[in-house]
Each structure stands twice: as structure tokens, then as C-alpha cells.
Write a protein that binds this DNA or RNA. Sequence first.
DNA 1: TCATCCAATATTGGTACCAATTTATGGGAA
DNA 2: TTCCCATAAATTGGTACCAATATTGGATGA
Lengths: 209, 209
Amino acid sequence: MDNLLEETIAHDEPDATQLILTDIQSGLFPPGVWLKQVDLETRYGRGRNEIRRALDRLAQKRVVEHVPNRGYHVYKADGKLADDIAEIRIILETGVVPKVVAMATDDDLSSLRVLAERFESLILYGTVLELYEANLNFHRAFVQLSGNDELDGIIAELRQRTSSAPVSQWKTRARIEQSAREHHEMVDLLQARDGKRLKALIERHIRQR
Amino acid sequence: MDNLLEETIAHDEPDATQLILTDIQSGLFPPGVWLKQVDLETRYGRGRNEIRRALDRLAQKRVVEHVPNRGYHVYKADGKLADDIAEIRIILETGVVPKVVAMATDDDLSSLRVLAERFESLILYGTVLELYEANLNFHRAFVQLSGNDELDGIIAELRQRTSSAPVSQWKTRARIEQSAREHHEMVDLLQARDGKRLKALIERHIRQR
DNA sequence: TCATCCAATATTGGTACCAATTTATGGGAA
DNA sequence: TTCCCATAAATTGGTACCAATATTGGATGA
């Protein structure tokens, strides 16, 4: 049997969890809306079981909330919750700065620069979701430089919980452009090995002020 | 209907996820062992479905690993993985120090002191699991002082992933006693509002050196 | 005697069905 | 008309069954 490799890859099965998550992040399912199992079932063409498992996982991730015998609805991450999550992100992303500063090579800097430009170029013609992904990729690449493989996952999880963000985060065009500039500035400061200013910038960047 | 409140509380149903997790942390299920669904089913007296859901959740938390058509086995968190997780904990728990130092009241300090003593008193006659819980409670109370409600959950999740730790973490009696002393020292430094030394101590404490 | 293959068994994972609960609808009484 | 209750529809959640896959044990042949 030479189909061992094929079989594992062949199936185009982005699992339902990811599909639902993407639809939440794209704004299709706004915060507060109830996710009915039959609807999801037909929309994604998956069995009832997989949908239930996906919803349970999203509930564990606290992207949706589960109310027994009522169903699952998209969680609203706002007010204090959003602030708390932002604060944790700040602690983590500034916390790795020393290691990143110490370990980043010239190649790493170029890669970051590319990702920063990618984000910038999507401002004009990219969708909200593409912009969101590009931003995510930049930040992921940044923390990856610390060499800590787990950190990436933790931060990704945190970002997912501010699910309404993609729509509401970059309200104005001006704010998006500023984000793009800040990305470049982050690379600049990293190149200059200026950990102190870099931390301050990251904090401002995440707080969006 | 006056049984609304009763109904939600009455049932003594610590869900299977927690039960399995506790058994993993107590060392009953050592790292690497395969968790067979029927066994868990009979052991906890729960339906097949609940067991499956529990295993899936633990797999999401990366406490166990899922191998398709083979089952679930306890994850071994050692080497780089354990180091990465410890590092994240250090970033988080030292990261909140400024806020904790700023916000802690005298009452908070007393509460912490009680928890530190609780841990200390369990050294002699407590089980490993009780010691683990007491230690957890101390650290939770500490980060709770930051006022960030989400941080607690994140850290708890991280600790759970170093599941083999409770058994292997405190190898020697001397190490346990040092941990107890360090807890007290943390309260001392917090009382003195010495953030810098407190951060250093926490780092040493988590690294266990 | 040892390796290899095949059948028997055990285990996982999915599907379909049914019970429990909630929400919507409509009719009747104040 | 408005409120309330009963009945019907819709939705969730659990249980049982069955198919797919892996593992074990034994027989066969070199």
C-alpha cells in the first residue's frame, strides 16, 4: 500500500472548528448571535457530531458561550474582559522582547520587514479578514523569534477570544495606517536592539492609543 | 417552581474532564499511558459520550495527545516543552508584579500568608495532590491580586500541561521546604513593595534552582 | 526455532434515532 | 384588548448501535 501518505493528506478537511471560527472573525456571526446546530450542519456540510464537537471546542476556548439546553452563542469580549486580554498580550509580547532582541538575526529582520510590508500593501485592496491574517502573521513571526514554540499558541488563543476585534479593531483608515507604520517601527527598534523603546511601542500598539 | 436553584446546584457532577485530569495529576495515569474509553467509562460511571468529550477537551488543552484510530495517551511534558512553558509562566507571573505591588492591601497580604502557611503545614502529613493544590492556590491568589480575571485561567492552563510535574516536581523534601520558604519570602517582598527583588525571586521559584 | 501471514478480538469513531427541554403559537378568560 | 395558560413546533443533548481500524494470538511454512 503506497497510499499511506496520500490518505492522510488527501481529504480537504479543514475541521469545522476552524470554519466556524473564521466565520466569527470575519463578522458573519456577530457577537451575541445564537449558533444553531442544524444551520451549521447544512452550511458546512458536516455531520451533527462534528458540529457539536466544534462548538464544544470553541466554548472551551471561550470564543462562544454554552448555555445548557439553549445552545451556543458568540461571546462578547468587551469592557473589562477585552482589557484583561489586551493586558495579558502586552505582558507576553513585551516579556519576550529581551530574548527576541538577543536572538534576532539579520535574516529574521528581513522576514519581519516582508510581513510588515505585506500588511501595508493589503490596506488598499485586501479584505478585513486578509488584513487580520497579515497582522496576525507579523505578530506571530515576532514572538517566534524568541524560540519559545508554545508562546505562539497562547497568544493566538488570546487573540481569538477578542473575536469581534477584526471588525471593530481598525475602525478608521488612519488607525490601520498607523498600525502599519508601527510594525515598521518595531522592526527598526529591533534592529537597533533598543529593548526599552520596543517594549513601550508594543504596549502602545496593542492598546491602540 | 422553587427548585430552580436547587436543580442547577444539586447534582454532584464534577465533569469527567476534571476527574481524569486529577487522576493524571495525582500520578495515577503516568505520562505515556493509553487512556482506554471503556476503562474510563466504568471507572467514573459516565456514558461513552461524556468520556469522549472529556478526552477531546484534554487533547485541546494538550494534556493528552490524540492519535486517530489509536486513542488518547497522556502527554509527556519534558525537555524543551517544559522549559518553554516554565518560561511563559515566568513572563506572566513576573509581568503582573508591578500591578500586584500597586494594588495589594494589608488584607490581601494576610490572605497570602495564610495560604503560604497552609502549604507549609501540608509538607508533613499532606498527600502529593493536596500539596499540589495548596501550591496552586497560593500562586492563583497572588496573580488574582493584579485584578486581571483572565490571567488566572491562562496560568492554570499552563500548569495543567506540565502534568507530570506534581509527581516529579518536588523530588526531595528539601526542595519542598525551600518552596514553602520562598512563598513566605514572596509575601515579605510584596509587603516591602520591592518589585525588583520579587520578580527575581519568582523567576527562581518557578525555575526551581 | 523463528519469522510471517491471517483470523479473531478489541478499540475507536461516526451515524441515526429518541428523549428532554425550551421557545413559539394560538386560544380563552378577565 | 391584554394577559395567561395550554398545546405544538423546534432545538438541544444523550444513548445505542454499527462500521472502520488497530492489536493480539495462533497457525503455517521456511
